[in-house]
Design a protein around this nucleic acid. Structure first.
Lengths: 232, 232
DNA sequence: AGGATAGTTCGGCGCTCGCCGAAATGTGGC
DNA sequence: GCCACATTTCGGCGAGCGCCGAACTATCCT
């Protein structure tokens, strides 16, 4: 017994994520926002007391962080690492045996465009990645990417100044495997900046109770004009 | 209940990994080799019957694949996705609250050089990544990489022909965050090819009962001459 | 102060699931 | 055929843990 290194705590982390209620809580936080205990209870589908217990465990293990604000307590994912682990698990889950595709309206919206922690995923996320790649703004070498000089200028024009944001140790341009499309979209600082900018421009907006995002009218024309994207 | 999309199966996957015995089994398979049920029972630290049950569950969920060979059954990780999820979980586990660093001899060996599914990790893996980067053979843009033309020639000289191996849909040059060093090393097809080549040259060899690898005498001089690496 | 809302703690119920002993199946060697 | 070995199936035990009702604390509002 006692496999010396991380096996122990690895199982502990996976076990925490392995409960349906807690998995729902973490999934709800995947869009990067901070939610209250009550909202998370709703997402988890269990009572407030039970949720409180789950949140305590997740906080103890440093999977989520908490910030007190008045009589509310706001919870968010503790680090991007947690989001990445969740995505990796989703990928494994999605790639398993042929599941019945639950193609409900909600599901369709999720597949079209959604946030993934702090960047865009789904068809929209992939379309943006494709557009930047085909125009030579980013070089994507099979799952890995770098911004070109030309791309840097293009992005500055679009309202994103990478030079200023390059502080911190977050990867500038990382890719993230999309569980619904099985292809890579842009994550990292660039992905986050693109996402933020699209919200600021009013091209997309959040939907209630879901990570799915809606593309606005101005978004339709904006994505078409700037990136040459038109989602059916 | 029944949160429509993946939340359900996400928890199922995490739950499977969340048992100590099964986590040990998966960890043991992280070096990419296929092991028998008996060997895995040893790694798991539980009886053969119990292990059999665990293996059935993991196989059902397509986390591991099995190949029958005589009276043995060889198990291996089903897809690289599983290994990536494991690494991501390890990263989260390692980044948690300040753990007592168990600096035993075994642990030191693991931190120096080990296999990570099918590529090299630890100080050695990072040193190789650094060397290739500083010589301009691969371009690493904060966590993402691509092989340069110059690098391609260098690698061919070293005995790796990337052009031929570029079939399949595996990323050519992906990075993988190292849980012990908290930095990126090379994974993907390139990482796997480098690892294989080092084994073929006799520069490194596997150790018993561990993912740690030992650097041979010829490896010491080889790594120094070819990559300019000298590990203390 | 009193009532409403957000959140936590406590206690106990019930179910899942990991575990092993014993026995069964399957395979190889002699 | 017979024995050795690898692996699985069955049955039952026991512990861990997720769940909720009820009661308690904290904060905001008026």
């Amino acid at each position: 017994m006692t496999n010396i290194a991380s096996g122990n705590t690895l199982a502990a982390v996976a076990s925490l994520i392995g409960d349906v209620a807690r998995a729902n809580i973490l999934s709800a936080l995947m869009d990067g926002r901070a939610l209250t205990a009550g909202e998370l209870a709703w997402h988890a589908g269990v009572s407030a007391q039970t949720t409180s217990g789950h949140l305590a465990k997740l906080t103890d293990a440093d999977l989520i962080a908490v910030e007190k604000q008045g009589r509310h307590r706001y919870f968010r994912l503790a680090t991007p690492d947690v989001a990445q682990a969740m995505e990796a698990l989703m990928t494994v889950a999605a790639s398993g045996p042929k599941r019945h595709r639950p193609t409900g309206p909600k599901d369709t919206a999720m597949r079209t465009a959604r946030t993934c922690y702090d960047h865009l995923a789904g068809k929209l996320g992939i379309a943006i990645a494709d557009a930047l790649m085909s125009k030579g703004h980013v070089v994507i070498s099979d799952g890995a990417g770098a911004v070109t000089r030309k791309g840097s200028a293009f992005l500055r024009e679009f309202g994103i100044d990478l030079a200023n944001d390059m502080k911190g140790n977050r990867p500038l341009c990382r890719t993230c495997l999309d569980w619904s499309e099985r292809r890579s979209h842009l994550a990292g600082q660039l992905g986050a900046a693109l996402c933020t900018r699209c919200f600021d421009l009013g091209w997309i907006k959040r939907t209630k109770d879901s990570r799915a995002v809606a593309i606005t009218r101005s978004g339709q024309s904006g994505f078409a004009k700037t990136f040459g994207i038109s989602l059916s």
